[in-house]
Computed example of a mutant assay.
Amino acid sequence: MTIKNCIQQKLENAFDLSHIEVINESHKHNVPPGSESHFKLVLVSNGFAGKLPVKRHQLVYRLLADELNSSVHALALHTYTEQEWQALQNQVPASPDCMGGNGH
């Protein structure tokens, strides 16, 4: 199973999500082709209601601790309630290009 699929499965099993995107952004970084080290996650759940963004992120970090301690170098987290997601018109900010690494 790919790391992306493993992350998605864990998130779907742990949260009552109405929308999920697991985007491998490794190609934007100075890593070998086919790497699975940098991910952008878009998670929409009313289970996030009443929780500050830092608490939402801590839930995800705990869930993905094994991946973060091994193969995953970075996560861009976008966690929303249904109402927040609708207010954003189902759009998330674009991730910036990598500015680090040996190639820059």
Rank of each mutant, 00 (worst) to 15 (best):
His27Ala: 15
Val31Gly: 06
Glu21Trp: 06
Ser26Lys: 01
Val42Glu: 04
Val44His: 02
Ser26Arg: 02
His27Asn: 15
Glu36Gly: 06
Lys28Asn: 11
Val44Asp: 02
Phe48Thr: 00
Leu17Ile: 08
Ile23His: 01
Leu52Ser: 14
Ile23Cys: 08
Leu43Met: 15
Asn24Phe: 07
Asn24Gly: 04
Asn46Met: 01
Ser35Gly: 12
Ala49Trp: 08
Glu36Thr: 02
Glu21Asn: 13
Leu52Gly: 06
Lys51Gly: 03
Val42Arg: 01
Asn24Gln: 07
Pro53Phe: 05
Ser18Leu: 14
Ala14Gln: 13
His19Val: 12
Leu17His: 07
Gly34His: 10
His27Arg: 14
His38Cys: 04
Pro53Glu: 03
Ser37Gly: 11
Lys40Ser: 04
His29Asn: 11
Ile20Phe: 11
Val22Arg: 01
Leu52Thr: 11
His19Gly: 04
Phe15Trp: 10
His27Lys: 14
Phe39His: 02
Ile23Trp: 01
Gly34Cys: 13
Asp16Gly: 03
Glu25Asp: 14
His29Glu: 10
Gly47Val: 09
His27Val: 13
Ile23Asn: 05
His19Pro: 05
His29Lys: 07
Gly47Met: 11
His38Arg: 05
Lys40Asp: 03
Glu25Lys: 10
Phe39Asp: 00
Pro33Ile: 10
Phe15Ile: 08
Pro33Thr: 11
Val22Met: 04
Ser37Tyr: 07
Lys40His: 03
Phe15Ser: 09
Ala49Cys: 12
Gly34Asn: 13
Pro32Lys: 06
Ala14Leu: 09
Ser35Lys: 02
Lys28Cys: 07
Glu25Val: 09
Phe15Val: 06
Asp16Thr: 11
Leu41Val: 03
Ile20Arg: 12
Gly50Pro: 11
Ala14Asp: 08
